[in-house]
Design a binder for these strands. Structure first.
Lengths: 339, 339
DNA sequence: CTGAAAGCGCTTACAG
DNA sequence: CTGAAAGCGCTTACAG
């Protein structure tokens, strides 16, 4: 490996000077800068990451807390990861993956090594046990998602408010009035509630109340069979429903199956709109589902940038990004059938 | 932060001694070991990762080369990542994600910082441009997948030989003789060929030849519409086919749609088996597809362990893991209809 | 604008 | 079994 020492010798300067030109931390005369730069490129110098980290007390590493939840998020977690690592790369940082569950003790152990400068947490719950640990250790962090108390935290999250309103407006525009909402069974994740369904349900109920319509919420586990069952239960109790918003990717294909086997065709009898649904999931549904796709890449990207901004300037206020879902085409929307 | 110095002072020993007990690198008397351990736990000492890396010339970091190919692998890439990061954690290592395309120059730049001890490469192509860079720089690496010339490399890959044979045997056992294979269009990835379809097609042709049956291979892009089209083309030219092996997750739902709209029901008229298909994908198909699921987690896990083994003992021979797909239930298999 | 030197927090021969 | 000391490759006051 080529060290600063080697560059310094070839350029006839001190290693301090090499450091100054590499980092641009102090003015260097044009002539010596050129000598140093020439020496660097001739030697193929790249400064050692760990030595830099040790001396500067800045590792330029950020961790992504990456729960091994196969049950959730599989469809967009990869987008987060891509977005976050791309953003890290853009800012001369690296992303390390920490397979930590919502386990405060494990998290502490990871943190103690001083490997990373800050942390990104995904799969954030309303009462997330990782947040107190992060605060206690003084670790800079950004959440992907939101806790119930968002005061002071930096986060990047889906704009569920606007996305839910968009979904309901879309159906309303087509003429639908009786609109039900399909959500995942809560508690699947564990201890604490997961924010998105809670927020979406709140907005949905509010909108329906504004419209003077009855709110109908159906719960389903995260699998097609439960989705089919949810369809049956829904039609039993509310056969007059003509519009459906579903936020449960895995259940959606089963939901459609259930509607079909109950004799309802989509979109002729019932219109269905996927909320926060991965486009790939929507595409494989029968029929392909109109949907609002979560901005996974953008979320990861925004979260990482926000964290790095904070690392560069700890005094800056925490940045919050709230990004709307993106409307995606499908064949599951139509005006309600004439009565 | 607590340093070794602090522990040493509290335990009345030198920092060398602290290092010996932390690392177990040299014998230490029971009494001083206990003093040191007490001091460590009282102080909550964890050794600094970067100082350790710098002094020991071993960062205990491994990189996962993580191409931003949204087009492929989305369904199991997450499993790789989980497996690899879990294995890293088991062996006191960390996984860092490098969003590098198959770009030799970019890879070199990443490598030069000396951040990581070794590299895991996924989405390996038959002629992978990253391999020469890795070799030239002397970076220990393990492939997830295989190049065409596997001599000397360590890799973890799916056992396509046995998985393909299993798929074909399963259909044969049910009585199917006319069996077609649906693969993805080659070249979707870019410059060089992608191994899995090549290997699978080879095994398929060989088995069909052994059986004295005609080999029928249909290509499809990685989306449902292309899958539907592939079904039409297949039935046009080979209406007598009763069995289908499909290795193209995204196309599969469309393929089934295409069969249906051509008046063939699954499994009554045609049996379909997904090869190297993610279980979640199989589950959302209509009907749910019998399939052979790729051992994504195990692959990532095996690859990371293999790399770390090599790092611990560079003289040990490269380890190759070849893991079969796992049979998953579905409702897409039946004996062929009586003629 | 440039350099000598201390220091970041560890590991590891080398002595004893 | 234990310690003093050099060294890993950088950054960063401090002088000049």
């Amino acid at each position: 490996m080529v060290r600063m020492q080697d560059v310094a010798e070839r350029a006839n300067v001190s290693i301090a000077t090499v450091s100054f030109v590499v980092n641009g931390t102090k003015p260097v005369s044009a002539s010596t800068r050129i000598r140093v730069e020439t020496a660097m490129s001739e030697l193929g110098f790249t400064r050692n990451a760990h030595a830099r980290a040790l001396a500067s007390r800045r590792s330029r590493l950020i961790a992504l807390l990456f729960p091994a939840l196969d049950t959730r998020g599989n469809w967009s977690a990869l987008q987060f990861v891509h977005g976050a690592s791309a953003a890290a790369a853009e800012r001369d940082h690296h992303l390390v993956l920490w397979p930590v569950e919502n386990d405060p003790v494990a998290l502490r152990e990871y943190l103690d090594g001083g490997l990373v400068d800050g942390v990104l947490a995904m799969e954030v719950q309303l009462e997330d046990p990782r947040v107190p640990v992060l605060e206690k250790t003084g670790t800079p962090f950004v959440l992907i998602g939101r806790t119930s108390d968002t005061s002071g935290y930096a986060f990047a999250d889906i704009d569920f408010e606007s996305s839910t309103r968009t979904a309901l407006a879309e159906l309303h525009r087509l003429g639908h009035r009786r609109i039900a909402l399909v959500l995942e069974q809560p508690g699947a994740l564990g201890d604490s509630a997961y924010g998105p369904p809670v927020r979406v349900e709140g907005v949905y109920r509010q909108v329906m109340a504004e419209r003077g319509e009855e709110a109908v919420v159906v719960l389903s586990d995260r699998d097609p069979a439960s989705g089919a069952d949810a369809a049956r239960r829904l039609l039993d109790r509310h056969p007059d429903v003509t519009g459906l918003v579903v936020m449960n990717d895995e259940a959606a294909p089963g939901l459609l199956r259930g509607l079909r086997s109950a004799g309802r065709s989509v979109p002729e009898d019932v219109s269905v709109l996927g909320l926060s649904m991965a486009s790939r999931m929507a595409a494989v549904c029968e029929p392909p589902l109109a949907h609002l796709a979560p901005p996974g890449y953008e979320l990861g990207h925004a979260a990482a940038l926000s964290l790095i901004d904070h690392l560069d300037d700890p005094s800056a206020p925490p940045i919050r990004s709230v990004l709307p879902c993106v409307l995606g085409d499908g064949e599951s929307l139509a005006p309600p059938a004439a009565p």
